[in-house]
Structure formats: structure tokens, C-alpha cells
Design a protein around this nucleic acid. Sequence first.
DNA 1: TTGCTGTTATATATAAGATATAACAAATAC
DNA 2: GTATTTGTTATATCTTATATATAACAGCAA
Lengths: 128, 128
Amino acid sequence: MYIEIDFNSDEAIYSQLCDQIIMGIAAARLNDGDPLPSVRQLANDIGINMHTVNKAYTVLRQQGYVKVDRRRGAVISVDPDKAIALEELGESLRVDIARAFCRNISREDVHKLVDRIFDDYASDHSKE
Amino acid sequence: MYIEIDFNSDEAIYSQLCDQIIMGIAAARLNDGDPLPSVRQLANDIGINMHTVNKAYTVLRQQGYVKVDRRRGAVISVDPDKAIALEELGESLRVDIARAFCRNISREDVHKLVDRIFDDYASDHSKE
DNA sequence: TTGCTGTTATATATAAGATATAACAAATAC
DNA sequence: GTATTTGTTATATCTTATATATAACAGCAA
């Protein structure tokens, strides 16, 4: 588990943790069935409190990225809820693209950026 | 000024205010040189505190969407900093697309969504 | 003068984020 | 059996962010 936390960021630690794990799944560094480190282990590795990791795991479970097995602990388990995900993506993009639009970033600029990010995730995927 | 605040949202009021004004600029409902309502006026219209509006205006000024004229108050003034905006957009997209990727949302799905949002902003623009 | 700008200062209340310590039931390893 | 590890829950504490309230200030305009 390579986790990078920016302690000077205005984004909450547990939120950064969620983002990194989700990006790890997209990049196929984490696959369905893979166990996550225990809350105590990961907290110790990163140098943060156990409850901060626990909050991240709880959020990931509520959002459908993780399930908890009493025996094995937290395990990656993505449930593909495309409809809701599309709606949430739209909400987020509406604001991001507004900011981009104000700065004369073109539709093609955004498409290229999307393609580049998709290629990154897809290429990581093909290595498995 | 049509501002919609969701008081049940987990997003801060001043942050929602910033987003709405930026989306207003993208949609050309607000144009360069247009004055924003005074902090007291807008606070009164929405039913929130003056300082909450003031914080939003301050953030918008720091991010380069607004300038302050002692005589006229806050005025829309977008400075097109494309390089920084592209970087910020990339950071945001990397997380959003990871979430989408996990939910089997395709590259084409994202492109369509981007186009739809761009069309919305551009069509609003052409009405002016 | 009167009234309007944004701005600043101070104070207060609530909520969120992070930490610390402790305990619990369930499962595993010995 | 014991010991250890799992997620989970409960308390408590501290800091920061958010939002409100009241008040005052300098600059500008009618």
C-alpha cells in the first residue's frame, strides 16, 4: 500500500485516504478480493490515528468500494452502480468545467485530459 | 442573481456561493464588468450572514474571478490563467474519473457528459 | 450630511476533523 | 484452553472550520 498524505492540504486526511484507495482500484493496484491493511496497521504505517483510517474504511464501505469480512478484515469489493455514479460525476463536472470554461480551456483540452487519465488507468489495468 | 443554497448540504455555504457564481460566469449570466450585489444585500436576499457572503467574495477575488472597486463594490473580472486552471482541472478529474472507472463508466460516457455540459454553457453564451 | 461600498475586529456557538485511551465480540493461531 | 488480531463502539479532548452577531472604519456618491 503506497499512500501519500499531504498534511498541509485543506482536504481531510480520511478523504485523501479514500481518494487514494479509489485511484488504486482504478489503476488495478487493488483488485476485487484484495484485503486492505488493518486500521491499526495502516494508521501506524502512515503515522495517523486508527480512527482516521476507520472513518475512511467506513466511508468506502458506504460508497460501495469495500466490504468487511470478520475473518479477513476490509476487502476490496466494488459494486458497479453506474446510474448513481454517472449522476455524481455530472455534478462534479458541472463545477469543474465552469471553472475551466472561464479560463478559456476548450472542449478539446478537456477531452485530451480525460483521454490521458483514462489511458493511465487502462494501461495500469493491462499489466495485471 | 438567482442563487440556490442547499442548507442541508455538507458543502459550506460560502463554497456553494462561489460555485454558483462561477457557473453563472460560465453560463454568461454574469459578464466581465457586471457588479455583484453588495455583501449585505446578497446576504439579506439569501437569508445568511454578511460575513459568509464576504468570505465567498474574498475567495473569488483570490482565485481571480472578481475584483473590488471601492465605488462600485465587487465586479466580475476573470483573469484567464489557463495553465494553472488546467492543472487544477487535472487533479480534480483524476479522482472523479477513478470513481467513474470503478463503476464501468466508459471513456465515451465521460466525453458525452463533457460535451453536454460544454453545450449548455456555450448555448447560454450565444444568447447574449 | 446621509447612505452606501468593502473591510476589519471581536466575540460566540456549532460542527467537523483528528487524536487518545479503552473496551468489546468474533475469528485466528498457538 | 490462551493469546492475538480483526472491525467496531464508546468517551473524552483538542484544534480548526463554519456561521452568526454586533460594531466600527475609510472611501466614495448623491
